Amino acid sequence: MAHVERQPLNEADRQSAPSRVAGLAMNGLHTLLGLALLLVVGINFVNAVSRYLLGVSPLGADELMVYIVIWVVMVAAVLSLIMRSHINVNLLPIYTSGRTRHLLHVIHDAAAVLACGYATYASWLFIGRISRLGVTSMGLGVPMTVPHAALLAGFAGLTVAGAFMLVRDVIALVRNAPHTRMAP
Rank of each mutant, 00 (worst) to 15 (best):
G42M: 12
I43P: 14
I43V: 15
N44C: 15
F45V: 15
F45W: 14
F45K: 08
V46R: 15
V46E: 04
N47T: 07
A48Y: 03
A48W: 05
V49C: 09
V49A: 15
S50M: 15
R51D: 03
R51V: 00
L53P: 01
G55A: 09
G55K: 14
G55N: 08
V56M: 11
V56N: 09
P58Q: 06
G60Y: 03
A61K: 11
A61W: 02
D62I: 04
D62F: 03
E63M: 10
E63Y: 08
E63K: 13
L64Y: 02
M65G: 11
V66N: 08
V69M: 13
I70C: 08
I70A: 10
V72A: 11
V72E: 08
V73D: 03
M74Q: 10
V75T: 08
V78L: 15
L79E: 03
S80D: 06
S80F: 01
S80A: 13
S80H: 01
S80Y: 00
L81I: 09
L81A: 05
L81C: 01
R84T: 04
S85M: 11
I87W: 03
I87N: 05
N88E: 10
V89N: 07
N90W: 05
L92Q: 06
I94R: 15
T96E: 09
T96P: 13
T96M: 12
G98P: 06
R99G: 09
T100Q: 11
T100H: 04
R101D: 01
H102W: 03
H102K: 04
H105A: 11
H105P: 00
V106E: 06
V106M: 10
V106T: 08
H108G: 13
D109G: 06
D109F: 04
D109I: 03
A110E: 06
A112W: 07
V113M: 09
V113R: 08
C116D: 04
A119F: 10
A119Y: 01
T120F: 08
Y121M: 14
Y121T: 03
A122I: 14
S123C: 08
W124F: 15
W124G: 10
L125D: 05
L125T: 01
I127Q: 10
I127G: 07
R129K: 12
R129L: 09
R129T: 06
I130H: 10
V135C: 03
V135S: 12
V135K: 12
T136P: 14
S137R: 09
S137I: 03
L140F: 04
L140K: 11
G141I: 01
V142N: 08
V142P: 14
P143Q: 03
M144V: 07
P147A: 04
P147K: 08
A149V: 00
A150Q: 05
A150I: 05
L151H: 04
L152Y: 00
G154I: 02
F155T: 00
F155G: 00
F155P: 01
A156T: 10
A156I: 01
G157I: 02
L158G: 01
L158N: 04
L158S: 07
L158C: 05
T159G: 10
A161H: 03
G162L: 00
A163H: 11
F164T: 05
F164E: 04
M165H: 07
M165V: 02
M165T: 06
L166M: 14
L166T: 06
